[in-house]
């Protein structure tokens, strides 16, 4: 227990003694976590917006006029049994005429003497099938039925949404990887400077019989502490950002930033990992060169 507390204390003292190198690392970690966090929030909310748009996506299946009630019923049953379909609703020619009147303000019978609107279905797909590849497969399947005349959907809208979703995902991943890499490299460099500044301590410890673990542990604690402090600063930034954005700017943009406890715990865990990994990769490499 004595050694355990001693090493913890040494880790804390080391952070205070490292001064500028430590402050610099904390600063870099907090900036990295802020950018990673912003990347996460932006991509999460954009993906959410894209998904919301996609949820309004529908397939329209127009049937041949000659389709009998029995054929339509059988087709409805087939749609119901398809695993990709969330919901299908039938629109009879009469309902279509009523909808026409509601949307355009004119009665179709007063224009044409007959109802040209065919029976149709609107189909809502399950979220995972709301992409061009799945949709094309589903349409091909539906078209096999001889009573189907035409299937329409907003292909271009779907393609555009998919493209943006991919771009957001790639950018968010790149931002995350880049700042993870930058943080770890900078923590490593800071610990390298610290090791160099404390070479006297390290060589003395080795001379008096300290094991490698005894020498290394305070550096790991120091790295992890730098990471956690950097993360706490970034948490403060996000707390303030959420407060200001949601209280002062909501009425202009109608957008609320929503961050839960998991987000803050995630940031602190990331900071801890950045600090620890940064010190692990350096201490192992450079400690052997001293003493």
């Amino acid at each position: 227990m004595t050694v355990f507390f001693f090493l913890i204390k040494e880790g804390f003292k080391g952070l205070i003694r490292s001064q500028y190198a430590g402050l610099f690392t904390i600063f870099i970690i907090s900036i990295s976590l802020i950018l990673i966090g912003l990347g996460f929030v932006i991509s999460r909310d954009m993906v959410f917006a894209v998904q919301k748009l996609k949820s309004q996506f529908e397939l329209e299946v127009f049937l041949k006029y000659a389709a009998t009630d029995r054929e339509i019923e059988q087709f409805y049953a087939m749609l119901d049994s398809m695993p990709e379909i969330l919901h299908a609703s039938y629109i009879s020619p009469d309902s279509a005429a009523k909808r026409f009147k509601k949307e355009f303000g004119e009665d179709i019978y007063s224009i044409l003497d007959y109802n040209p609107l065919p029976p149709s279905f609107t189909i809502e797909l399950k979220p995972i099938y709301r992409n061009v590849v799945s949709v094309e497969g589903i349409i091909a399947n539906i078209r096999k039925n001889p009573i189907v005349d035409e299937v329409k959907y907003r292909r271009n809208l779907l393609l555009t949404l998919e493209k943006y979703q991919r771009i957001i995902f790639v950018i968010a991943t790149l931002v995350f990887l880049f700042f993870t890499f930058v943080s770890i490299v900078l923590v490593s460099n800071s610990i390298k400077m610290t090791i160099f500044a404390r070479r006297e301590l390290i060589s003395t410890l080795k001379l008096i019989g300290a094991t490698n673990t005894f020498v290394k542990v305070p550096f790991f604690i120091e790295g992890a502490l730098e990471g956690i402090i950097g993360a706490i600063i970034s948490c403060g930034f996000f707390y303030a950002l959420t407060y200001v954005a949601n209280n002062f700017f909501y009425h202009f943009v109608y957008y609320k930033i929503q961050l839960d406890l998991k987000f803050y715990v995630g940031l602190i865990s990331l900071g801890f990992l950045f600090g620890l990994i940064g010190s692990l990769r350096t201490v192992g490499k450079f400690l052997g060169k001293i003493g």
Binding site: L205, G209, F214
Partner: peptide, 27 residues
């Protein structure tokens, strides 16, 4: 001498015992 200037006389001497895992009271 190879003493550590960032700690006092007591701490310099005690360091030898900390690395040998001696208990605080005995140190």
């Amino acid at each position: 001498f190879r003493l550590l200037n960032d700690r006092n006389v007591y701490q310099n001497v005690a360091l030898s015992l900390y690395v040998s895992h001696v208990k605080t009271r005995e140190i």
